[in-house]
Structure formats: C-alpha cells, structure tokens
C-alpha cells in the first residue's frame, strides 16, 4: 500500500474514531454521567482538573466532563436535525430542478437558493431570534435553512451531469417518467456526493451551533451546550483556563473528526478514484 493510500484510510479511521467517541459520549450521557450537571456545588467551584473531577469544575462547581458529555447531545442533535432539514428539502428541490433543467421552474428554484445563500446562517439566526426569541429549535431552523441551498445546488449539479448520460436516455426510451428516473437512477448515483457533503455540513452545523450558543442565540440555560460553556468561561479565562480549554477542544475534535470522516468517505466512494483502482 502506497503512503498516500495509507493516509487516506487513516483519515477514515481517525475520523470514525473521533466521531464515534463524541456520539458515544452523548449517548452514554443519557444513562450515566460522572456528576449531575443540574446540581451546583459552589464549595468546589472553578477547580482545575484532578482525580475527582477529571476536567475540573466550572464557576458553579459543575463537573466539566459531565457538562461536555451532555453538551454533545445538544451539538449533535442540532447539527443532525439541521442537516436533515437541508437534505430533506434541498435534495428533492435540486432533483426537481434538474429534471426540468433550464425551464422557468429550474430558474426559480436556483435563484431562490442564491437568495438564501445571501443570508449567512448567523444572519438567519439573528432574524429568527429577534422575533421568536433564542432557543435550540430556532438554531436548528436557522442552520437548516442555510443547508437547503447547499444540498439543492449539489444535487442539481450532480443530477445535471447524469441526465446527459446514456443510461438515463435508455430509461426515458423505456418510457419512465422524470420523477421515477430521478429516484431510481439519479438519486442512487449522487448518494455518495450527498453522504460526503452531509458529513461536512454536519461538522459545519456543530461549529455554527457552538457559535450561536456562544452569543446566546442557541440552547438556553440550564441546558448545557459547548458554546455556552465557552461564553461562561470568558471572564474567568485568565485564572481558570481549563474552563475554556476543554469545551473548545471538544468542538475542535468533533469537527475535525467529521471532516476527516468526510474526506475518508470521499476517497472511498469517489467513483473516479475507484475506477483508477480497478
């Protein structure tokens, strides 16, 4: 095995491990956490990492490891649902636009996408929060809306390439309609693209959620979230750096893991590379 190939599979392995670690921590937190995160313990506040509290405690004496585990639930749930919204609406829109390529409908769908792209997710979040008030649900909607054009564009461009291929022509000769062809022939052939992009949007969703809850637009206290933990730590950073360090590392490693997983999957699933191997 050549060094580059080894690196590629290493991406996949490290990515899957990191993603598994944080997903596992989130799931485990439903059953067990080292300390109850709703209980304050002012006597033991702002303690550095030790044998008792592996990652230390925060300004209310809550165990940071437990907070990170419970916070992973928020991050992952927000990101997964946001990707779900993006895929669930974006992919059908993109497929529809491609099936009616260069028609008025296509134009309308794609211009609509451009319009949403002009509002960065943060701005969408700001608008929604300004009216509905901050909450995790609104963060999901904000990030999810921004994901729609990402998936719509990707599926449209992937599908456009396929619609010119002879096997789609053959299906049309067989009398199949655009809808049936889209789901039977187009979708399975762009699934790889969607999986890879889904992983990347998942990681971007984690980052976006962290940013939103850092500025107070995400999950509200007492629900622990990584961004909120960082916001809380900010005023104490000079004497309690551990409060900022560990939640930040949690975000960094989760996002890194997902990105590596996405890269690894792309190399694994990319038909261009696979053709080169056979």
């Amino acid at each position: 095995m050549s060094p580059m190939r080894f690196l590629r599979s290493r991406n996949l392995v490290i990515g899957a491990l990191l993603t598994g670690l944080f997903t596992g921590a989130a799931l485990l937190s439903f059953l067990w956490v080292p300390y109850d995160v709703t209980q304050m313990d002012i006597a033991h506040k702002i303690k550095p990492p030790s044998g008792v509290h592996w990652l230390g405690t925060d300004h209310y004496g809550r165990d940071i490891l437990s907070m990170i585990m419970v916070g992973a639930r928020t991050s992952i749930a927000v990101a997964v649902l946001a990707v779900g919204i993006g895929m669930g609406l974006g992919v059908p829109l993109g497929l529809w636009a491609a099936a009616r390529r260069f028609s008025l409908l296509d134009e309308v769908i794609m211009r609509g996408n451009d319009l949403v792209f002009a509002f960065p997710s943060l701005i969408i979040a700001v608008m929604i929060t300004a009216i509905l008030g901050p909450s995790a649900t609104n963060a999901i909607i904000a990030i999810g809306i921004f994901n729609i054009p990402v998936f719509a564009r990707l599926s449209r461009s992937g599908a456009l390439g396929l619609w010119n291929r002879d096997f789609i022509l053959a299906a049309r000769v067989a009398g199949k309609g655009a809808m049936r062809i889209s789901f039977e022939h187009v979708l399975p052939n762009i699934l790889n693209l969607l999986i890879v992009q889904g992983t990347i949007q998942f990681s971007m969703g984690i980052l976006a959620e962290a940013g939103l809850s850092y500025v107070g637009l995400g999950a509200q206290p007492p629900t622990p979230s990584w961004g909120r933990m960082l916001a809380d730590s900010q005023t104490m950073i000079s004497f309690a750096p551990h409060m900022a360090l560990f939640p930040g590392l949690a975000i960094l490693l989760t996002v890194l893991g997902l990105n590596l997983l996405g890269d690894g999957l792309r190399d694994l699933l990319d038909p261009k590379l696979r053709r080169g191997r056979t």
């Binding site: 980052l207 940013g211 850092y214 950073i237 000079s238 900022a244 975000i251 996002v255 890194l256 990105n259």
Partner: peptide, 21 residues
Amino acid sequence: QLGVAIPNFWFAMLMVVLFAI
C-alpha cells in the same frame, strides 16, 4: 485540517490568553 475545525471565537479566546494576558 485543524484550522478548518477550530471554532474561531475559541481560537480568539486562546489568542487573548497568550498575546494579551
């Protein structure tokens, strides 16, 4: 790869600790 994954506001806080404090 690390740079892509780092949350910018956290990176900012780390820089404050190092360069300002």
